[in-house]
């Protein structure tokens, strides 16, 4: 489709929105991966959410 003489403005708008959303999704997913790794490391060290009397450290 022909977006006319202002095609650059239209495509830049959609492109920047797409980029912003992708950055946001990537940031959230990387954050989740880091947190899950930290929880796994803590579990490997024997630090759990259970109280010591329940079997955790």
């Amino acid at each position: 489709m022909d977006l006319g003489s202002h095609a650059g403005f239209i495509l830049a708008s959609y492109g920047l929105c797409l980029l912003t959303v992708l950055v946001l999704i990537a940031w959230i997913r990387i954050d989740k991966a880091n947190l899950e790794r930290a929880l796994k490391e803590l579990a490997e060290q024997g630090v759990s959410r259970r109280r010591p009397e329940e079997g955790g450290r």
């Binding site: 999704i25 959230i28 997913r29 899950e36 929880l39 803590l42 060290q45 759990s48 959410r49």
Partner: peptide, 23 residues
Amino acid sequence: VLHLMAMRNEILRRRVRTLRLRA
């Protein structure tokens, strides 16, 4: 979608903090 994903992360972050304090 993003809000639920970010809330899940925040709950995990607080769990990590609590466990580190416990350790």
